[in-house]
Design a protein around this nucleic acid. Structure first.
Length: 260
DNA sequence: ATGCCTCGCACAGCGAGA
C-alpha cells in the first residue's frame, strides 16, 4: 500500500497536479492538506472522475484537509477535528480507517512569527496532538500520522538547506522540536529517517528567491508510524519531481509503502 | 529589516503561508 501526504496549497489551483498524481502514482491513500476550500466547494466530481473518493474537512480560504482512496476501497470516517479545544475553528485534522490502518491527515500550525499568539497556538495544538496520539497508540493498531507538521526536526543539512537562514523561524525553534520529539518518543517511527538515516531529504521549497532552482528546501512533511505500522514499513520517499512541474505546490508528495 | 512567489478573496491590494 502506498500512503501519501501532499500539501496542495489550494486544491482548485492544483487540480491538474492532483488528478495527474492520482493517474500516475495510483496511491492507496492520499492525505491532503491546505485544500483552502469550503466543504461545499470540494471538487469531488473531479476526484470521482479520476476513480477516487474520500473524506474532507474544509475551510474557506485557509487550511483544510482530506483523505482520498480508490473508489473501491472507501475510508471509514473516525474523527473530524483534533480533540482538546472546542473553540478551535481551524480545519487541520481528519482521521479515518482504510484497510485496517488508521490514517490521520494533519496540518500543523505554522506558528510564525515566534513570540506571538500564533506560536502559542502551534505549541498548544501539538500538545493536543500528543494527547490524542497517545490514545491512538493504546489501540495497538497500525496507525499513520501523515501530514505537514511544520517542524524541521534537526539543524542537519540533511533536513534543512541552511539552519542559519531559518534559525528564527517557528519551524526550527527548540520548543517546536521538543513538542515533535515528545510525540515521536511515545513510540512512533519517522518513516523517512527509518529508510534514509543519512542523506538529504527535503519536502518543501519556497516559491521565493529561487529556492527550488538552487535546491534550498527543508523537511517538514512527515509520516509517523505506530509500531504495528512500522513492522510493515517497506519503503519511504518523496516524489520530488512534482515540485518542478507547472503550477506546482511548494510541497512535494511524501510517501510510505506498507506491506499488505 | 523587508521582499522575494503564490493562493484565496473578490475585483484592489491584503492576509497567510514557511
Amino acid at each position: 500500500m502506498k500512503i501519501v501526504t501532499y500539501n496542495l496549497n489550494g486544491i482548485r489551483a492544483r487540480l491538474p497536479r492532483l488528478v495527474e498524481y492520482l493517474d500516475e502514482q495510483k496511491p492507496d491513500v492520499l492525505c491532503l492538506q491546505e485544500i483552502k476550500c469550503d466543504d461545499d466547494a470540494f471538487p469531488i466530481m473531479d476526484v470521482r472522475a479520476a476513480g477516487y473518493d474520500g473524506l474532507w474537512h474544509g475551510q474557506k480560504g485557509f487550511n483544510g484537509v482530506a483523505i482520498l482512496t480508490p473508489a473501491a476501497a472507501p475510508p471509514t470516517p473516525r474523527r473530524v477535528g483534533l480533540p482538546g479545544d472546542p473553540d478551535d475553528t481551524h480545519s487541520r485534522y481528519l482521521e479515518a480507517e482504510v484497510n485496517g490502518i488508521v490514517v490521520a491527515s494533519l496540518y500543523l500550525p505554522n506558528g510564525n512569527p515566534v513570540g506571538t499568539e500564533k506560536f502559542a497556538y502551534k505549541l498548544a495544538w501539538m500538545d493536543r496532538l500528543r494527547a490524542h496520539a497517545q490514545e491512538l497508540l493504546a489501540e495497538e493498531k497500525p496507525t499513520i500520522l501523515a501530514g505537514d507538521w511544520n517542524v524541521i526536526p534537526t539543524d542537519d543539512p540533511d533536513d534543512v538547506f541552511s539552519a542559519r537562514a531559518m534559525a528564527h523561524d517557528a519551524l526550527m525553534q527548540p520548543e517546536s522540536r521538543q513538542a515533535f520529539r515528545r510525540i515521536l518518543n511515545l513510540g512512533f517511527t519517522d518513516a523517512i529517517r527509518a529508510r534514509t538515516p543519512e542523506g538529504q531529504v527535503y519536502t518543501f521549497w519556497d516559491y521565493t528567491a529561487g529556492c527550488w532552482q538552487r535546491d534550498a528546501g527543508f523537511r517538514i512533511d512527515h509520516l509517523l508510524l505506530s509500531a504495528q505500522a512500522a513492522d510493515r514499513l517497506f519503503d519511504a520517499g518523496v516524489d520530488k519531481d512534482y515540485r518542478g512541474r507547472e503550477k506546482a505546490s511548494d510541497h512535494a508528495p511524501t510517501w510510505v509503502e506498507i506491506e499488505g
